[in-house]
Amino acid sequence: MTIDLNSRYGLNPAHSEVVAASKIIAPCDTLDMGCSNGRNAIYLGQLGFNVTGVDTNPGAIDMLQSISIEQDMQNVKAQVYDINTANLGQDYGFISCTVTLMFADPTRVASIIADMQQCTLAGGYNLIVCAMNTEVHPCPVPFPYTLKAGQLSDAYQGWELIKYNEDVGTMHNGAKLQFATLLARKPA
Rank of each mutant, 00 (worst) to 15 (best):
I95V: 13
E135H: 12
M73G: 06
D55S: 10
F179H: 00
N40P: 07
V19W: 01
A78Y: 01
T30M: 02
L182G: 00
T134S: 11
S153K: 14
A20M: 12
T30V: 06
Q178P: 02
I61M: 05
A78M: 04
T56S: 11
Q118D: 14
K77M: 10
Q65S: 15
V76R: 00
E160F: 13
S66E: 13
G174W: 06
L161Q: 12
I162S: 03
R185D: 02
E166A: 01
I61Q: 03
Q118R: 15
V19L: 07
S66W: 11
D4A: 07
I42T: 09
D91P: 05
C139K: 06
E166N: 01
N126W: 02
G158E: 05
G123E: 03
I128S: 04
C139G: 07
I61A: 04
I61N: 01
Q71R: 13
V99W: 09
I24W: 09
A180I: 00
S36G: 14
N133R: 07
P140K: 10
I113Y: 03
Y125E: 05
P140A: 09
F143P: 02
L127P: 00
M1I: 13
I83L: 15
I67V: 11
I42G: 04
I69R: 13
A26Q: 12
N133E: 08
T52E: 09
A104C: 14
K163P: 01
G93K: 03
G10Q: 06
D105E: 10
D82W: 06
Y145F: 15
D154H: 10
N40Y: 05
N57V: 11
Q157Y: 08
G89R: 10
N75G: 03
C119Q: 15
C35E: 03
K163Q: 14
A26P: 03
C97I: 09
Q46H: 07
D72H: 14
I95N: 03
E160T: 15
T107D: 14
P106V: 09
T181I: 11
R185P: 02
I61G: 02
C28W: 00
A184C: 09
D55T: 11
I25V: 15
H15P: 09
I83T: 05
K186I: 03
A86C: 06
Q71M: 12
G45L: 05
T120W: 02
L127E: 00
N57T: 13
D105W: 06
Y81K: 12
L88H: 03
H15C: 10
S22V: 05
N37Y: 13
V51T: 06
L88V: 12
T181C: 08
Y92T: 08
F143N: 03
N50Q: 14
A131T: 04
M116V: 13
